[in-house]
């Protein structure tokens, strides 16, 4: 088990789908957060899914974390204050997300009209599948 006791005040984004940490890192613009220390843990052992990614952030973070469920279903957010977990959030999946997921279908209108917002709708709550509202292509962070 990884030790998170080193965090004093910050956030642990846990149970990220293995391989998905960098996408969340980029979405949260963590490279631009000068006041935060950030650790990315890839392929940590997970009893539920075999392996998972984690992001540990020490310091204040301004981004809206609740939207992250769309990027990686099942992730949890642990808020750490004074070295202890004060809140554990299981994120619900938003019905629609705009400009968070990117449609990678080369046949989609978003592939040629760069200014269009990338909008996705939750197609299946149980599996966390999102589909592009334009082409209905399923979102995949692997493609």
């Amino acid at each position: 088990m990884l030790n998170i006791s080193g965090l004093k005040n910050g956030v642990v984004i846990d149970h990220i789908q293995a391989g998905g940490a960098f996408e969340i890192y980029n979405y949260l613009n963590l490279d631009k957060e000068d006041d935060c220390s950030v650790a990315i843990i890839k392929n940590a052992k997970s009893n539920k899914t075999g392996k998972k990614d984690m992001i540990k952030i020490e310091g204040p973070i301004r981004a809206d974390l609740d939207i992250l469920g769309a990027l990686s279903p099942n992730l949890t957010i642990n808020i750490i204050k004074d070295g202890t977990i004060v809140e554990k959030r299981h994120l619900s999946l938003p019905e629609t997300v705009t400009n968070i997921l990117k449609c990678r279908n080369p046949r989609c209108i978003t592939s040629i009209e760069q200014e269009l917002p990338h909008k996705f709708k939750l197609a299946d709550k149980n599996t966390g599948i999102y589909r592009c509202i334009y082409c209905e292509q399923r979102y995949s962070n692997r493609s």
């Binding site: 279908n105 046949r107 989609c108 209108i109 978003t110 592939s111 040629i112 009209e113 269009l116 592009c132 509202i133 334009y134 082409c135 209905e136 292509q137």
Partner: peptide, 26 residues
């Protein structure tokens, strides 16, 4: 339109009814 979803984009900005007459393989 050859690109999927183009008629939906049109509908979002149109003040007249839009009928999709085929958008790619969609």
């Amino acid at each position: 339109h050859p690109k999927e979803g183009a008629p939906l984009v049109a509908a979002q900005y149109s003040s007249i009814p839009v009928i999709n007459a085929g958008d790619g393989g969609h």
